[in-house]
Design a protein around this nucleic acid. Structure first.
Length: 866
DNA sequence: CATCCGACAGCAA
DNA sequence: TTGCTGTCGGATG
């Protein structure tokens, strides 16, 4: 067992020393044998940049380049999977980027501070579970205390009008005070001291004390400021310049304030700040989910959008004084605009990044022999624009940017200088409180000749889950279009941003739900976007949402970057481990140039595929096996009115479920059975004013005479084939599966085929990443040639073979038979034969890859559409 | 009439 | 708490 404390202190020492032996000493502390390290050293050919590689453990490359993320993207172009290592690391003189191939986490740190995240590399010493480092716990503690204070105040002031408003007003002023305290805008520890000394322990006069404190900041001539507040400076901050109503305090809330003010607020990590605020405002009732974007995800977005390019420009111009000056000038004019900024994570991270680039340029210039004048930084927070609907979050963004500016100033000058200048920046305020779907973006961030980059993570909300207000917003944004009621809320931002960057050299990129790149949304939204003369410039394919908050939202996201057609750039599709250049990126975030729209009827010669029957019953027409037992035992005649039902779950996992199924002519007889009558009454109640269909029946009453095909609408994406099957006339298929009634067996063959499965995976929607079969999108659009009877016969034989093969293992459920890790050879073989038969319907020459199959299908689809 | 979706939902390990 | 995998209902075209 390794001594973790020693490990951490070793990493700290190695990072601080930062000699040329960094990686070797690093590996040594993580328990790598001395012999291995000696061997690694031998491999070095003298080139500074040759990588250090311990197979299956770590791959480390040193670089002289300053932007590690760009280099990481570059490395992805050769596919990280080819490098056999758990950790991929890139480092330059000061910083290190590490990527964990298993957990897909990215760590970006200075070498000096690497010890704070030393647990990131625990897998190297055989520990998977991470411990939380003290550095992080302090910040989380601050966040939790702050949220606790908020909640306690709301409880303590219950009954007061506008409690939330009053409390959040106070919270923003307190947040300001704690930050101001940490950067020395107020003398350090002053807030804690004043509250401790001059308020009653019971908290009764704290409200009054704080009021006087806030007032004191705004009295320029200090007239009327009580002696005990004289150490507070005059700070002309417009957004706090109006008196506010304060909540009542008690012993507990006073104590919390004291505790919070004792914590160190000097580390404005936007990630932490975001989690802090999210925990406070995420209980919001106006149906907006507040989520902050993690720092690694922000980097995924800003790199390809503009940062990589700026760094390239820097690398190529750092030896030319004039070119450096031009670049500085360019940076000082860039505008960054987040129209859904929440607590400003994007803006703060980008501000820091640009500031760092700027200082690198300045440093390069100073070192040039012909360096003339003294160059100083000119990038400032008034180049950062934002819109945020939540007022509190909006204020936090302003404060976050301002204090980041203060911190950088302290870092560069050793102390806080030009305070008036800084305050002026804060007062200029380009962070607007408002609804981004309603106000003109151009008024907030005026288009000019200079570059504007729009970034962010706009709120997602599916069409059926939007509030009335959000629905109206969508209607308003797309007021010039028809057929827009199924838009996701986030689509508003994509459309408005496309209008904003169209025909300019501006560009935008958003983190967003993968729903926008799938299923019906593709056909609904993207043609409208492309009409604005823009195209997808880069994309990061889907990954699971993650941030450092407590409860991670269950959602799968993508990153999409969009540019105007007048200023195209090289196009890249990124995955977690690769980056490849493509000539074109479609809304599915793949390369072929195609958009598949919903079809009412099959475009090929295939029978119609309706959805199954929907109970629409709040469960009252459905019965579990034990309920059937009880019912039949008590009322044997009820047997006549019971049928098996099958949705996806029942079919795939071999579950038994029953329903009440009554022909109209038998209704009176059925009503004689009290439990059935009872159930029907419940359904009647539920359907009141909703549905005309009589309450003893499902909403649809389709039934087969012979056999019907069942196709699950949602199923696991891990299976090679979407399992489908036949059911007889005694089974009712529910709305959770599709069906083809009285289905000819050769159709089973078409739907089971690899060709069809590929098509469905590509053009249908998903539930997160699950397969979501749909008839209008995947079946009706499927291009399949007209085939002869003899072709149908041979497909039929393949189908019978598959069915026989399934019967041979009938003790298993479909899920077990099609378990991707455990499919029987027989079943695999019969499917393979079927695939070959189906593919011969398209052409004689065999297909060599799925890529080729898809391209062939898209081509056929495009031609069928004509 | 009948569909496609969910900043998901619910269960098991 | 994480991993796995499909419910349910209804506004919408």
């Amino acid at each position: 067992m390794m001594n973790l404390e020693k490990l951490q202190s070793d990493v700290k020492e190695i990072g601080a020393d930062n000699g040329p032996d960094f990686i070797y000493r690093f590996l040594l502390s993580y328990g790598m044998p001395k012999a291995t390290i000696a061997r690694l050293r031998l491999n070095i050919t003298g080139e500074e940049q040759s990588p250090v590689h311990v197979p299956n453990k770590i791959y480390y490359q040193f670089t002289s380049k300053s932007n590690l993320l760009s280099l990481f993207n570059l490395l992805k172009r050769d596919n990280l999977n080819k490098i056999k290592a758990r950790f991929i690391c890139i480092a330059n003189k000061d910083n290190i980027l590490a990527y964990d191939m298993n957990t897909e986490e990215t760590l970006l740190s200075s070498k000096k501070e690497l010890y704070k995240s030393f647990d990131f590399f625990f897998p190297l010493i055989g520990r998977e579970k991470k411990v939380i480092t003290s550095h992080v716990t302090v910040n989380i503690k601050a966040a939790e205390r702050f949220a606790e204070l908020y909640n306690e105040l709301v409880i303590a002031n219950k009954g007061t009008n506008d409690v939330d408003k009053i409390v959040s007003n106070l919270m923003s002023r307190l947040l300001f005070c704690f930050f101001a305290d940490s950067v020395g805008l107020i003398s350090r520890g002053a807030i804690n001291k004043i509250v401790y000394n001059f308020s009653e322990e019971s908290g009764t006069n704290l409200s009054y004390l704080l009021e006087s404190m806030f007032k004191a900041f705004f009295i320029k001539d200090r007239n009327g400021v009580p002696d005990y507040l004289m150490e507070l400076p005059f700070l002309d901050i417009h957004m706090f310049n109006t008196p506010i109503e304060l909540p009542r305090f008690n012993k507990r809330t006073r104590k919390l304030i004291l505790e919070i003010s004792e914590l160190d607020w000097s580390d404005v990590n936007p990630d932490i700040l975001g989690s802090l605020i999210q925990s406070i405002v995420s209980t919001d009732k106006n149906n907006i989910n507040y989520n902050f974007t993690s720092v690694p995800n922000i980097y995924k977005l800003i790199g390809p959008l503009f940062l990589d390019e700026l760094y390239e420009a820097y690398e190529s111009s750092k030896n030319e004084y004039q070119e450096c000056l031009n670049l500085l000038n360019r940076i000082s004019k860039i505008k960054i605009f987040d129209p859904a900024c929440f607590t400003g994570n994007f803006l703060i991270v980008i501000y820091k990044e640009l500031k760092e680039l700027e200082s690198k340029i300045v440093e390069s210039m100073r070192n040039l022999p012909n360096s003339k004048e003294v160059i100083t930084s000119s990038l400032n927070i008034s180049q950062f624009y934002g819109i945020e609907k939540n007022e509190f979050a909006c204020i936090v963004t302003r404060l976050g940017l301002f204090f980041t500016e203060c911190q950088i100033s302290i870092l560069q000058n050793g102390r806080l200088t030009f305070v008036d200048h800084l305050l002026e920046d804060l007062n200029r305020n380009n962070i607007i409180h408002g609804n981004a779907t309603r106000i003109s973006w151009n008024d907030i961030c005026p288009n000019s000749d200079n570059e504007i980059y729009v970034v962010g993570n706009p709120p997602y909300k599916g069409a059926r889950k939007q509030s009335k207000e959000q629905k109206d917003d969508v209607e308003f944004v797309f007021r010039n279009h028809n057929n827009i009621k199924d838009m996701d809320y986030a689509a508003c931002w994509f459309y408005l941003a496309s209008k904003f960057v169209g025909n300019s050299k501006n560009a935008f990129a958003f983190v967003t739900t993968n729903s926008l790149t799938q299923g019906q949304l593709v056909g609904l939204l993207w043609p409208k976007i492309f009409d604005e003369n823009v195209h997808i410039s880069f994309a990061h394919t889907e990954f699971k949402w993650k941030n450092s908050g407590k409860n991670n939202t269950a959602v799968t996201v993508v990153i999409i970057g969009i540019r105007s057609d007048v200023s195209p750039k090289r196009k890249f599709i990124f995955t977690q481990t690769t980056a490849y250049e493509v000539p074109w990126i479609n809304p599915y975030l793949t390369a072929p140039k195609v958009i598949v729209k919903k079809q009412r009827k099959p475009i090929s010669n295939l029978p119609p595929m309706p959805k199954g029957n929907m109970p629409y019953d709040k469960g009252h027409l459905l019965l579990e096996p034990h309920e059937v037992q009880e019912l039949v035992n008590q009322y044997p005649t009820s047997k006549k009115f019971l049928k098996r039902v099958m949705g996806s779950d029942e079919f795939i996992n071999d579950l038994e479920r029953w329903c009440i199924w009554i022909d109209d002519k038998d209704l009176n007889e059925a009503l004689l059975i009290p439990p059935i009558k009872d159930r029907i009454n419940h359904v009647k109640k539920f359907r009141l004013n909703k549905l005309a269909k009589p309450p003893h029946q499902f909403r649809e009453t389709n039934i087969t005479k012979t056999y019907s095909l069942i196709i699950p609408s949602v199923s696991s994406e891990r299976r090679t084939y979407i399992p489908i099957g036949f059911v007889n006339e005694n089974t009712i298929i529910t709305n959770l599966a599709f069906s083809i009634y009285d289905c000819d067996p050769w159709v089973f063959g078409v739907i089971s085929s690899k060709m069809h499965n590929l098509w469905v995976r590509t053009v249908c929607g998903r539930l997160e990443s699950r397969i979501r079969y749909s008839s209008q999108l995947g079946y009706n659009t499927f291009p399949f040639p007209d085939i002869s009877n003899s072709q149908k016969e041979s497909i039929k034989r393949c189908v019978y073979d598959i069915i026989t093969e399934r019967e041979n293992q009938s003790e298993k459920s479909i899920a077990q038979m099609y378990d991707p890790d455990n499919m029987s050879e027989g079943l695999l073989y019969t499917h393979m034969i079927l695939d070959a038969n189906i593919e011969r319907c398209y052409r004689e020459e065999p297909f060599h890859s799925d890529q080729e199959r898809l391209e062939f299908l898209f081509d056929l689809y495009n031609r069928k559409g004509d």
